[in-house]
């Protein structure tokens, strides 16, 4: 097998522009901030939701409620991949009933994470609407799930990996595509 090849698909400036556009699209989709709640999926999704919430705050001068969701306990593959070493915290900003919840995640791939997130949200209440906002859509869906807002669409093969790096956790903002990464660690 040839060495995995790494290319930058979003640098810090491109990532920042994508987030600004996504923040505007979130506002349009939710018709303002009145019912809006942003829920990030652990881990990178939580940081991205925080960024988008801050951008909306700068524009609109309102604090958008945000939460974090760890979907590990709602996954359908505990038997085959084993437990994750450490599960991140889940916290939701109050009642979700009648809210417009926007789920934020870094990469949309098979759709199984989003399926799990929808199941988990349903245990917390009945939002009026749930939308999906992702930084990278890499295709490869195994479920009928689509994003409402996408930062960038990237064509990938099953052996590829998409690494989203964020300042808060990784020291820099960048998205890399690694071609032909060993299978089984697909992101």
């Amino acid at each position: 097998m040839s060495r995995p090849e790494r290319t930058i698909i979003l640098d810090a400036r491109a990532l920042s522009r994508a987030l600004q556009r996504m923040a505007v699209e979130v506002l349009e989709l939710a018709h303002g901030t009145e019912h809006l709640v942003l829920i990030g999926i652990q881990r990178r999704g939580v940081e991205l939701a925080e960024r988008i919430a801050k951008l909306i705050e700068e524009d609109e001068g309102v604090v958008v409620p945000r939460g974090a969701l760890d979907i590990t306990l709602y996954r359908d593959d505990l038997e085959t991949v084993g437990p994750k070493p450490v599960i991140g915290p889940t916290h939701l900003p109050g009642e979700l009933t009648d809210k417009h919840v926007v789920i934020v995640d870094d990469v949309l791939y098979t759709g199984r994470t989003v399926r799990a997130a929808l199941d988990e949200l349903a245990d917390f209440g009945r939002p009026r609407r749930i939308s999906l906002c992702v930084l990278i859509d890499r295709g490869g869906r195994e479920l009928p799930i689509q994003a409402d807002i996408v930062g960038k669409v990237v064509k990938t093969a099953p052996g590829d990996r998409v690494d989203v790096l964020v300042e808060e956790l990784d020291g820099r903002d960048q998205v890399d595509l690694i071609r032909g990464a060993p299978s089984g660690v697909a992101a």
Binding site: V81, D105, R112, P158
Partner: peptide
């Protein structure tokens, strides 16, 4: 878990 890793594809970890 090892079997799933060897097989790759469906059954591997979701995104």
């Amino acid at each position: 878990a090892d079997a799933a890793k060897r097989g790759g594809g469906p059954g591997g970890p979701p995104d």
